[in-house]
């Protein structure tokens, strides 16, 4: 059997007296489209940021393709084949759409130390291909900061794909979108991940999005892993229903 892409063993993270993550164990196989869900404050973001090297874990190990990557700084993880996107859209706002992807390609390949060759001549072709893949072929010359929110999300996806990652971490990829945009956007990611054979781990709070694409779901609750399995199994889990439905009812009451 092939090595799991991602193994998380006993991951814990504490902020002062608050235990945000407690002994989380997780395994993601190649080609999975894994959703991490949980009510607000369940530790999704902490889990995600610890996984991607943004925060240092207090205990536990993270293995990528069998290699221990615990505590590696972001740039090293990224060069190793893990790409991530941010909950709050994060592009290089002052640069053009094409330059955004070019600088990403240069970064992944460790070519940002070249001090002489003009950068605009570098990897233009590949950058255009990536932009075409995410549907931004018509916007190459636009300043990235002036793109619509949805298009910035697409650009961020192109930036993430620029390094040929094997594992893609998406932090709330549909945050701030309308319901229709959300499904469109996650289907785009799902299609591209399928085409490229990527493994994807994403956090998401919109259940419609989760159940539309996730191959597996892990449920976090109060910093612990509550349940895990296929969407059907998770949906049928009474514990999850209790935690989640309670939350959903409260949320829907707040909205009205």
């Amino acid at each position: 059997m092939a090595e799991p892409v991602l193994q998380v063993r006993g991951l814990s993270k504490q902020f002062g007296g608050l235990l945000a993550l407690c002994d989380v164990n997780l395994q993601v196989e190649r080609g999975e489209f894994r959703a991490i869900i949980g009510p607000n404050g369940a530790g999704k973001s902490t889990f995600f940021n610890t996984l991607s090297g943004w925060l240092k874990a207090n205990a536990g190990r993270v293995l990528f393709e069998g290699r221990d990557i615990t505590g590696h700084p972001p740039h090293r993880l990224t060069r190793g084949g893990i790409a991530r996107t941010f909950q709050i859209t994060s592009v290089f706002a002052g640069m053009s759409v094409l330059e955004n992807v070019q600088v990403a390609i240069l970064g992944y390949r460790g070519q940002t130390w070249r001090p002489w060759t003009p950068a605009r001549t570098q990897h233009g072709e590949l950058a255009r291909e990536l932009l075409e893949r995410v549907g931004l072929a018509g916007e190459v010359g636009r300043q990235a900061g002036t793109l619509s929110h949805g298009d910035q999300k697409r650009l961020e996806l192109a930036i993430a794909l620029a390094g040929n990652p094997r594992l893609l971490l998406l932090d709330e990829p549909t945050a701030g979108m309308t319901a229709r945009e959300r499904l469109e956007s996650i289907h785009l990611v799902h299609r591209i991940a399928g085409e490229l054979g990527l493994t994807v781990v994403f956090t998401e709070h919109d259940m419609a999005v989760v159940f539309a694409v996730a191959s597996h779901i892990s449920v976090l609750h109060q910093g612990r892993l509550l349940a895990e399995g296929t969407p059907e199994a998770v949906r049928a889990n009474p514990e999850v229903q209790q935690v989640y439905l309670g939350e959903a009812v409260i949320e829907s009451e707040q909205r009205t």
């Binding site: 991607s52 740039h75 990224t78 941010f86 290089f92 240069l106 940002t112 130390w113 070249r114 950068a119």
Partner: peptide, 22 residues
Amino acid sequence: RSPFGYALQALKGNPARLQYVG
């Protein structure tokens, strides 16, 4: 104008993102 300078420009605007392109 070089790749070094592009990265510098990107760094100025968004250092977090730049770390995650390696």
